[in-house]
């Protein structure tokens, strides 16, 4: 456990040492998205499932920041360790492969969570300025679940890509041509209910969509119709389990 804890601590310390790049830059982009789309354009847009567009946007941006940063954390860490020789240092120690995966995955969750919290705080300030009320968390446990799953899955994906990439260019290619399209088309800015039928079908194959809707449900208590149905089913299943 000490070995796992040490690697986790190192991963967290690493991103805190380059805070400008890992926390301040995502904060700036969230700030810009919120002010341009949420506050400025959002005031001219219709409500989405009876909530303002700004409120709709906040959890989407939180999840997008979380997944993107979790991915960047582990992928850049592995790539840097691989190119600097640090990875061999770790491989000759008694750290098992499981320890490495868990520690780096959790380190990614922490970075993703930090970015999500910063985005939420900025969003709450804008929401308060616009509506003079506080945007609370509707389902904290659902939120925690999606933070952990989203951060950990994208952290592990980052490890895979970090190992696969032969150069920084390979990693940039994956981020720009696969990861970012999945994130942007995963329902951050629009509900898939507003898309044409064919686009809705294509989007349903995007795994990011479910994570973003999960986060939205955790914060707002509402999300795209299909996800609300999943939640209802889960609730019925829970009642069924409790009864029997």
């Amino acid at each position: 456990m000490v070995a796992l804890w040490t690697l986790f601590k190192k991963e967290v310390k690493r991103f805190l040492k380059v805070m400008m790049q890992t926390i301040v830059t995502p904060f700036m982009s969230s700030f810009l998205y919120l002010i341009v789309f949420g506050v400025s354009l959002g005031s001219k847009m219709n409500d989405v499932y009876a909530v303002s567009y700004l409120a709709f946007l906040i959890p989407g941006l939180m999840m997008m920041g979380l997944m993107n940063n979790a991915f960047q954390n582990s992928s850049s860490s592995i790539a840097v360790m691989k190119f600097s020789g640090d990875l061999e240092d770790i491989r000759v120690t008694p750290l098992s492969h499981h320890h490495i995966l868990i520690a780096m995955g959790l380190g990614s969750v922490i970075r993703g969570l930090t970015v999500a919290v910063v985005t939420y705080l900025v969003g709450v300030i804008f929401y308060f300025m616009q509506f003079n009320s506080f945007l609370g968390i509707s389902h904290p446990l659902v939120l925690i679940y999606f933070v952990l799953v989203g951060g950990f899955v994208f952290g592990l994906l980052g490890i895979c890509i970090g190992f696969w990439a032969k150069s920084i260019e390979n990693m940039a290619a994956f981020t720009n041509f696969i990861l970012l399209p999945l994130l942007y088309l995963g329902g951050v800015f629009v509900s898939i209910e507003t898309l044409p039928a064919w686009a809705k079908t294509v989007s349903s194959y995007n795994p990011v969509l479910y994570l973003i809707n999960g986060m939205r449900y955790g914060v707002l208590g509402v999300s795209d119709e299909f996800f609300s149905m999943v939640v209802k089913d889960l609730k019925c299943f829970k009642i069924y389990l409790i009864k029997f």
Binding site: V2, A3, L7, P94
Partner: peptide, 10 residues
């Protein structure tokens, strides 16, 4: 310190 930790020494 990290190297020690990898060997289980806190």
């Amino acid at each position: 310190e990290f190297m020690s930790g990898y060997y289980g020494i806190l």
